[in-house]
Nucleic acid binder design. Structure first.
Length: 489
RNA sequence: CGGGAUGUAGCGCAGCCCGGUAGCGCGCGUCGUUCGGGACGACGAGGCCGCAGGUUCAAAUCCUGUCAUCCCGACCA
């Protein structure tokens, strides 16, 4: 068998790149740091997007669209925010090109310099809050619950397909509330939506937590996150939900008149998940044979491979199965390809992570059955033709659960409680350190010192962590609870 | 922005030292034999050798410049 994918043991990051490429998810483009999301990868993103979109709408949010370009001056309105993003902005300085007077090609027309430069949005808080000022007058205008699906640009130095690209797709929610309590509730409601989505759809277990001040979103009072553990023992921030306090309301002068006819500043949240989730999905479930997709998000849930190739009786039997599957809301593809042999197709569909494969040949027809193979475990069984749709429906559910359970067990195994800094360093020196649950004295100074020495960062202060007296792993100072450290993507 | 490397067919590479017909594997096309775990044979298509100068009768090959990409170090969902 031709090995087309580098094994994880051999080279994990090459394995990741092989999966992205061989599963037809995305490729690098002519533009440095920017990727082309291919139809199969985009179909996956669409499924993720549709589920999230539904969940946002069920909780009262509506979609809108704000401009790609943001006046440079907007960014500087909120002090923390500028500092966070200024270093990675694409800037538009001119609006016209002209023929190069010295030769061939085009040059920027120096006459066409913009009065005020525009930046390509790295996130949209500023333009949105500038707009909200006009939309919000009274407490009756609140809460304002808006989401947008958009692309954003952050000029990253080192990029990796899906995990970190200069341009990426995401959703960003921006809400305005009358009270601090409401805004905080919203922040946590969204964190729960993200958690539900990650665990029930992506089958990717996550830890809900609060970011330390050092890791907080630029401009937020508090950042909540979900953190996932990848197969190589590194953590991935999978989603963030920010309680913005009144910072943007102050910066953009967004006030409302309350029931007592008094002016008050609005309370805000913002939250987002991006195409980075696809990277997380890959690194949670996939194996050395290729992509593994959870049934709830797979663009194609079932593929039928005719053996040896499409032909009358096999086509007929397959058509019946497909009909029965479609009646149950299961997406199914019949492999009509005449060129490749069954063995090749098996490998190919495994590479693409299709959860269930059915194979039908004359041998099966003679026995009135069909071969069913599941992607997650590789197991194959023969099932009577009659009951195959019901069997597959149940199997898809089993696969979804199995993927989650397997990932959950892995995450638990990869979480270590540590109480001495030597053990801490030793574990971080290993190939696959995972999450380390340890005490921290709560200071940024200590956090940075630990990062300096070990490259590990505090991923979050887990929300469900119990209070526990202890002493800081580095300084020995008192600590009230454990936090999660890890090396991160 | 510092250090290292590479640009030759769609992809992966050889050829460069020692200048002289543009080569291999994969992929692609046609035909045939195959087909229950990545098939094989025959024939075929496909290249301003990154770009610009220079040396030479002659440059993928030598020299100069330039551009681009990749890898390693400081930021980040």
């Amino acid at each position: 068998m031709a090995k087309e994918i580098t094994s994880r043991a051999e080279d994990y990051s090459q394995w990741y790149l092989d999966i992205v490429k061989k599963a037809n998810l995305a490729e690098n483009s002519a533009v440095r740091g920017c990727m082309v999301i291919k139809p199969y990868g985009f179909a996956l993103w669409e499924n993720m997007r549709d589920q999230l979109d539904r969940m946002f709408k069920e909780t009262g949010h509506v979609n809108a669209y704000f401009p790609l370009f943001i006046p440079k001056s907007f960014l500087s309105r909120e002090a923390e925010h500028v500092e966070g993003f200024a270093k990675e902005c694409a800037v538009i300085t001119h609006h016209r090109l002209m023929a190069d007077p010295n030769g061939k090609g085009l040059v920027v027309d120096p006459e066409a310099k913009l009065e005020e430069e525009l930046i390509v949005r790295p996130t949209s808080e500023t333009i949105i809050w500038d707009t909200y000022r006009n939309w919000i007058n009274s407490y009756r205008d609140l809460p304002l619950l808006i989401n947008q699906w958009a692309n954003v640009v952050r000029w990253e130095m080192r990029t990796r397909l899906f995990l970190r690209t200069a341009e990426f797709l995401w959703q960003e929610g921006h809400t305005a509330h009358a009270t601090k309590e409401e805004a905080m509730e919203e922040t946590l409601r969204i964190l729960d939506i993200y958690t539900t989505f990650a665990e029930e759809y992506m089958a990717m277990p996550v830890i809900k937590g609060i970011k330390t001040p050092n890791e907080r979103f630029a401009g937020a009072d508090e950042t909540f996150c979900i953190e996932a553990m990848m197969q190589d023992g590194k953590a991935l921030q999978a989603g963030t939900s920010h309680f913005l306090g009144q910072n943007f309301a102050k910066a953009f002068d967004v006030t409302f008149l309350n029931e007592n006819n008094q002016q008050e500043l609005v309370w805000a949240t913002s939250w987002g998940v991006s195409t980075r989730l696809i990277g997380g999905l890959i690194m949670t479930h996939s194996d050395d044979n290729g992509l593994v997709l959870p049934p709830k998000l797979a663009p194609t849930q079932v593929v039928i491979v005719p053996v040896p190739k499409p032909a009358g009786p096999i086509d007929e039997a397959s058509a019946k199965i497909m009909k029965a599957l479609k009646d149950r809301g299961i997406t199914c593809k019949y492999d009509m390809d005449m060129k490749n042999r069954p063995g090749f197709k098996f490998a190919e569909h495994e590479m693409h992570g299709i959860p269930v494969r059915l194979a039908i040949g004359q041998r099966d027809l003679d026995n009135n059955q069909v071969e069913v193979a599941r992607r997650d475990t590789g197991e194959k069984t023969s099932v009577p033709l009659d009951g195959v749709a019901d069997y597959v429906q149940q199997l898809l559910g089993d696969i979804q659960n199995n993927l989650f359970q397997k990932a959950k067990t892995f995450q638990e195994q990869k979480t270590t409680r540590i109480d001495s800094f030597n053990d801490f360093k030793d574990l971080l020196d290993t190939e696959s350190p995972g999450f380390i649950s340890a005490h921290w004295d709560g200071t940024t100074e200590t956090e940075l010192e630990i990062k300096e020495q070990t490259k590990a960062t505090i991923r979050c202060i887990p929300l469900d962590g119990e209070a526990e007296e202890g002493t800081c792993i580095l300084t020995g100072k008192p600590s009230a609870r454990r936090v999660l450290f890890a090396k991160a993507y």
